[in-house]
């Protein structure tokens, strides 16, 4: 219809409206096209090639084939970084879901001053980066730190208190704790999800004689699974790339107890100038993330409830 009207207007060019749309479309997405071809596709190909070489990026590239990858799987530090990152991710992600969901459930109980509570819980997730890492370095300080001083007040003797980021055993749990402090972002998501659950479902459940627990388990949780799913996916991807806190607070120590994959990549590449090796690490990280993303997406049909989808 639009096209017919346009026909009656004075012609501006001999191009058909469709051709003009296509030209306009590609002009508008030009920034993205440049981004895609240079910073993504081009860079990925270059990264793949670099991962098959030995290079400091300055004096040239020496082709070594799969050597970097073979070395990596025999590199105890790399194996360690895989373990550390996996332990971190698979602790902080489920615990994060629990903490964020619990707060969201509490805030969804028609509380007074909702805005105030939400603000307090959300605030830590807004601030991030080095300032927070510096703050937490002190919070976790074994002698003067807020955490240990607080635990001491609870009557735990000083010599049995953990040394947090200064001990091999507690380094990763320290970062998990810090991660949970920032669970507020996910909390907001769950809160929005909870508020989107139609009340008639609860009414129907009540008519059926469901108690609070049953309502929670058979209405709230199923209706929230899409939000949990999305959030879990994003946190897994993010947690595998954890870097700033670890770099600032422990540098991977003590004794590599908190050496994460990206930190190891940074050290090998930008500190030791072994960029081929570092690129190979990046590709392995990519496949790990791809694998877990696919796993979560594949498993979603078993536990994620989508409205409008027929139950088999």
């Amino acid at each position: 219809m639009t096209e017919q009207v346009l026909e009656t207007l004075p012609k501006r060019s001999r191009l058909t409206p469709r051709a003009r749309n296509t030209i306009a479309g590609y002009l508008f997405i030009l920034p993205w096209l440049v981004h895609f071809f240079m910073l993504i596709l081009g860079a990925m190909l270059a990264s793949l090639v670099i991962s098959f070489t030995k290079t400091d990026l300055l004096t040239g590239f020496k082709w070594v084939g799969l050597q970097n990858y073979r070395d990596l799987f025999k590199d105890p530090l790399f194996i360690k970084s895989l373990r550390v990152t996996a332990i971190y991710t698979f602790t902080v992600v489920p615990l994060g879901v629990c903490v964020a969901l619990s707060i969201a459930l509490l805030l969804n109980q028609k509380v007074a001053f909702l805005g105030f509570w939400r603000l307090i819980y959300y605030l830590p997730s807004v601030v991030s980066g080095v300032a927070v890492a510096v703050l937490w370095t002190w919070v976790l300080n074994p002698r003067f730190g807020l955490l240990n001083v607080g635990l001491m007040r609870l009557g735990i003797p000083q010599d049995s208190l953990p040394r947090w980021i200064y001990s091999e055993k507690w380094a990763v749990p320290s970062f998990v704790l810090m991660g949970l402090w920032g669970a507020g972002g996910a909390m907001l998501l769950y809160l929005a999800g909870l508020q989107g659950i139609p009340t008639h479902l609860y009414e129907a459940a009540m008519i059926d004689g469901a108690n609070a627990w049953q309502k929670f388990w058979h209405v709230t949780i199923p209706m929230l699974t899409p939000t949990i799913f999305f959030n879990m996916l994003m946190s897994i991807i993010g947690s595998f790339q954890v870097f700033t806190q670890v770099y600032v607070m422990t540098g991977g120590g003590p004794n590599n107890a908190s050496l994460t994959i990206v930190l190891y990549l940074y050290q090998r590449g930008f500190v030791n100038l072994r960029f081929g090796y570092a690129s190979a690490i990046a590709w392995i990280l990519f496949f790990i993330i791809l694998f877990f993303t696919m796993l979560v997406i594949r498993s979603s049909s078993m536990w994620v409830y989508y409205e409008g989808e027929l139950k088999k």
Partner: peptide
């Protein structure tokens, strides 16, 4: 515009790519 949906799909799929892969190049 022609090819819009294909390009959008490509765009979505790049969201998964960890930045570290393209960092060095």
């Amino acid at each position: 515009f022609a090819g819009r949906d294909a390009w959008f799909l490509i765009l979505l799929s790049t969201m998964m790519l960890p930045a570290q892969v393209t960092l060095i190049p």
